[in-house]
């Protein structure tokens, strides 16, 4: 059987919020090492890759590798039934048709279980190589969400340019243009408020606002976001998830036709 118990059940609630607008359905692959999910959006422009390590769970048992196809809208509905402080357990048999979500209140006085039908999904699984990126920007996740939201008012695209001086976000359209520049933090008391840039070479790429705004739904998961860019390669937007794993979004840059 499969059983994964997480005392901080709110993490599951936040993960669903971070993927449900971008993906309609996805396979959750469960094995000894933990739970992974990889899926493309409907337009196949972006890719979500989620990794939750088994040692990050309060209890984890996986007798046989499982692939559970789920409708994420349905899963999100169920996780909305969990309280923010609830302990969440996901349970399934070895060849499951259904998955069960169990929510327990902190004091143990309330327990609910929700059973959801699984789907058979035939999804392409991609190999994402580890890459050295030309630029890696780490910045407060809330700041990135704010910039994406603000600049989306000006056009469909945001240009992200990174140099030694800092990182610049730009957008332009019918009403005018906007630029937001962030310098690398010189003196930071709190690590989570820092802007740091690791650069091999300066880069400048154009990305669709629509997708960046989908990615920032993961903001409640993490204080910081990491943006990694290289020529001829998709942008990687990564949010750490406590000490259990991370969610990564990949987005192909816009190029001149």
């Amino acid at each position: 059987m499969f059983e994964a118990r997480l005392a901080k059940g709110a993490i599951f609630k936040k993960i669903l919020e971070a993927v449900k607008d971008l993906l309609t359905e996805a396979s959750w692959d469960c094995g000894d090492m933990g739970i992974t999910l990889q899926a493309m959006d409907n337009a196949h422009v972006s890719l979500v890759s989620l990794n939750l390590r088994s040692d990050g769970f309060d209890k984890y048992r996986c007798d046989r590798n499982l692939t559970m196809g789920m409708n994420l809208g349905s899963m999100s509905k169920i996780l909305k039934c969990a309280g923010n402080d609830d302990i969440v357990t996901i349970r399934a048999q070895d060849n499951p048709d259904t998955v069960t979500f169990v929510f327990e209140s902190e004091n143990g006085e309330k327990q609910s279980d929700y059973e959801m039908k699984l789907m058979s999904l035939d999804l392409e699984h991609l190999q994402i190589p580890e890459t050295e990126y030309a630029c890696v920007v780490k910045m407060p996740a809330g700041e990135f969400a704010r910039i994406c939201r603000d600049l989306s008012q000006f056009g469909d695209s945001i240009v992200i340019s990174c140099s030694k001086q800092g990182v610049k976000f730009s957008a332009s359209g019918d009403i005018g243009s906007a630029n937001v520049k962030l310098a690398q933090s010189s003196n930071v008391d709190k690590e989570e408020e820092a802007v740091t840039i690791e650069m091999q070479e300066p880069v400048s790429f154009t990305y669709a606002c629509r997708y960046l705004n989908f990615f920032t739904k993961a903001t409640p998961l993490s204080a910081q976001v990491k943006l990694s860019m290289s020529p001829e390669y998709p942008l990687m937007v990564e949010y750490a998830i406590d000490d259990i794993g991370q969610i990564r979004y990949f987005l192909a840059p816009k190029i001149e036709d």
Binding site: F250, L251, A252, E256
Partner: peptide, 14 residues
Amino acid sequence: KQKQRSIASFFGGS
């Protein structure tokens, strides 16, 4: 005019 490649094409997919 700008276009976007399929994300799969970067990772060896179709």
